[in-house]
Structure formats: structure tokens, C-alpha cells
Lab assay of single mutants.
Amino acid sequence: DTLHVTQDGKHIELRGLSEEEIKLVEELLRRGRKVEEALKIIEELRK
């Protein structure tokens, strides 16, 4: 699936995420994380 995010005035499209990963990214962003940080966390969880 694809998640569309706008952060720091930039539109970012995150592709290839599972539904659970999207929920996790959304939660991390709500808690003030940056998109880059959220993606690093997803990458770690995929290992």
C-alpha cells in the first residue's frame, strides 16, 4: 500500500508498506517522529 505524508512542507509518498506498517508509521508521526526515523524503524522491524 501507499501512504501519503506531508512533512516540513514536503509531500512524501511511501510505497510498498503493509497495512500494519502504515499504521505504525502513522502512529510514529503522530508522536512527533520524522518520516526518515519512522522508515528506519520499519526497516529494522523487517529484518
Rank of each mutant, 00 (worst) to 15 (best):
E43F: 14
E27Y: 15
V5S: 05
E20M: 13
T6I: 15
L24N: 04
L45H: 07
L3I: 13
E37W: 11
A38R: 00
S18C: 07
E36P: 08
E37R: 04
E13G: 05
G32L: 04
H11R: 07
L39E: 03
R46E: 01
R31K: 09
R30G: 07
S18Q: 06
I22W: 09
L29E: 00
L29C: 02
L3H: 10
G9Y: 01
V25F: 09
E27C: 12
I12L: 08
E26R: 15
V5Q: 05
L45C: 03
I41S: 05
E19T: 13
K47N: 13
G9A: 02
L3D: 07
H11Q: 08
E13F: 13
H11N: 10
K10T: 11
L14N: 04
I41D: 05
T2Y: 10
G16S: 04
K47V: 14
E37Y: 15
E19K: 14
D8V: 03
L17K: 00
I22C: 06
H11I: 14
D8E: 06
R31S: 09
L28W: 13
E20V: 12
L3P: 07
Q7E: 15
E26P: 00
K40C: 10
K23Q: 12
L45S: 05
L45A: 10
D8K: 01
L14A: 04
Q7I: 13
G16T: 04
G16P: 03
E26A: 14
L17M: 07
K47L: 15
V35G: 02
E20N: 13
K34H: 10
V25P: 00
V35P: 06
H4L: 11
R15G: 10
I12N: 06
V5W: 02
D8N: 07
L24Y: 09
E43D: 13
S18E: 05
Q7P: 05
H11S: 07
L29Y: 03
L28T: 05
I12K: 04
V35H: 02
R46S: 03
T2Q: 08
L24C: 07
T6L: 14
H11G: 06
A38F: 05
E36S: 12
I22H: 06
K47T: 12
H11C: 04
I22T: 09
K10S: 10
E44I: 10
T2I: 13
L24E: 04
I12D: 05
Q7Y: 01
D8R: 01
K47C: 06
G9L: 03
E36R: 09
R33D: 05
L28G: 01
Q7T: 08
R15I: 12
E27N: 13
E13Q: 09
R30H: 06
R33G: 10
E43T: 07
E44K: 07
L3T: 08
E27H: 13
I12M: 08
K23D: 08
T2G: 11
T2S: 12
K34C: 01
G32W: 03
R31F: 14
A38H: 00
E36C: 12
G9P: 03
E19V: 14
L24I: 13
L39C: 02
K40N: 11
D1Y: 02
G32H: 05
D1A: 08
L17D: 00
A38V: 15
Q7L: 05
V25I: 12
E13T: 09
V5L: 07
L3M: 10
E21R: 00
E21H: 02
R46Y: 03
E37A: 09
K10A: 12
L14R: 02
K40Q: 14
R31I: 11
E44C: 08
I42E: 00
S18G: 04
L17W: 04
E43K: 05
L14K: 03
L45P: 00
R31L: 11
D8Y: 00
I41N: 04
I41E: 09
L14T: 05
L45W: 13
I12Y: 15
K40M: 14
H4S: 08
K40H: 11
R33V: 14
H11D: 14
L28M: 12
R31V: 09
E26F: 15
K34T: 10
A38W: 02
K47Q: 13
R15E: 10
I42K: 00
E19H: 14
V25D: 00
L29M: 11
H4V: 15
L3R: 02
G9I: 04
E37S: 06
L17N: 00
E36F: 15
V25A: 07
V35F: 05
R30I: 05
R30V: 05
E26H: 15
I42T: 01
E19F: 13
G32V: 01
G9E: 07
R33H: 11
D1M: 09
E27L: 15
E21F: 02
E21T: 02
K34Y: 11
I41Q: 08
I22L: 08
R30E: 07
L45F: 10
K34P: 11
K23L: 13
R15Q: 11
I41R: 08
R30Q: 08
V25W: 04
I41A: 10
K34F: 08
L29A: 01
L28E: 03
A38D: 00
E19R: 13
